[in-house]
Simulated assay, not measured.
Amino acid sequence: MDVNAHVRDPREHVNEEPRDDLGDLMAGFFGMTGFMTVVFFGMVIVKFILSE
């Protein structure tokens, strides 16, 4: 069986730019947590304003 497969070493990372995966994960997590905290307190304020 003759297969013309061009196998490349996956460790080469020819076109990959350097990334900080842990930093991206933490920024996304804390960014979303902060956003949801702002939304939560905003909804609490709206509830108190409308409950009069």
Results as ranks from 00 to 15, higher is better:
Met1Trp: 07
Met1Ser: 15
Met1Asn: 08
Met1Tyr: 10
Asp2Cys: 07
Asp2Met: 10
Asp2Arg: 14
Asp2Ile: 11
Val3Gln: 13
Val3Tyr: 15
Val3Asn: 11
Asn4Gly: 10
Asn4Thr: 09
Ala5Met: 10
Ala5Thr: 11
Ala5Asn: 09
His6Ala: 13
His6Pro: 01
Val7Gly: 02
Arg8Asn: 10
Asp9Gly: 03
Asp9Gln: 02
Asp9Val: 03
Asp9Met: 01
Pro10Lys: 03
Pro10Cys: 01
Arg11Pro: 00
Arg11Tyr: 07
Arg11Leu: 12
Glu12Trp: 07
Glu12Tyr: 03
Glu12Thr: 14
His13Met: 10
His13Glu: 15
Val14Tyr: 12
Val14Leu: 15
Val14Arg: 14
Val14Ser: 12
Asn15Thr: 09
Asn15Arg: 15
Asn15Glu: 13
Glu16Leu: 13
Glu16Ser: 08
Glu17Gly: 11
Glu17Asp: 13
Pro18Asp: 14
Pro18Tyr: 08
Pro18Gln: 10
Pro18Cys: 04
Pro18Glu: 13
Arg19Ile: 12
Arg19Lys: 14
Arg19Thr: 10
Arg19Pro: 02
Asp20Gly: 08
Asp20Lys: 03
Asp20Arg: 04
Asp20Ala: 07
Asp20Leu: 06
Asp21Val: 15
Asp21Trp: 12
Leu22Glu: 06
Leu22Trp: 04
Leu22Pro: 03
Leu22Tyr: 02
Gly23Ser: 01
Gly23Ile: 02
Gly23Trp: 00
Gly23Pro: 01
Asp24Leu: 08
Asp24Ala: 08
Asp24Thr: 06
Met26Cys: 08
Met26Lys: 05
Met26Ser: 10
Ala27Thr: 12
Ala27Leu: 11
Ala27Lys: 14
Ala27Tyr: 07
Ala27Glu: 09
Gly28Thr: 02
Gly28Ile: 02
Gly28Asp: 05
Phe30Cys: 01
Phe30Ser: 06
Gly31Ala: 02
Gly31Asp: 02
Gly31Thr: 00
Gly31Phe: 04
Met32Lys: 12
Thr33Pro: 00
Thr33Trp: 10
Thr33Ile: 14
Thr33Asn: 09
Thr33Gly: 05
Gly34Ser: 04
Gly34Thr: 00
Gly34Lys: 00
Phe35Asn: 03
Phe35Val: 05
Phe35Lys: 05
Met36Ile: 11
Met36Ser: 09
Met36Cys: 07
Met36Asn: 04
Met36Ala: 13
Thr37Met: 13
Thr37Lys: 08
Thr37Val: 11
Thr37Glu: 12
Val38Ala: 11
Val38Asn: 05
Val38Glu: 05
Val38Trp: 03
Val39Asp: 01
Val39Arg: 02
Phe41Ile: 02
Phe41Tyr: 04
Phe41His: 03
Phe41Gln: 00
Gly42Met: 00
Met43Ala: 13
Met43Thr: 08
Val44Glu: 02
Ile45Gly: 08
Ile45Leu: 09
Ile45Asn: 05
Ile45Glu: 05
Ile45Gln: 06
Val46Arg: 03
Val46Met: 06
Lys47Gly: 07
Lys47Gln: 07
Lys47Leu: 12
Phe48Glu: 14
Phe48His: 12
Phe48Met: 13
Phe48Arg: 15
Phe48Thr: 14
Ile49Arg: 09
Ile49Leu: 11
Ile49Lys: 06
Ile49Trp: 04
Leu50Met: 07
Leu50Ala: 10
Leu50Tyr: 09
Ser51Gly: 06
Ser51Ala: 11
Ser51Thr: 08
Ser51Leu: 06
Glu52Lys: 12
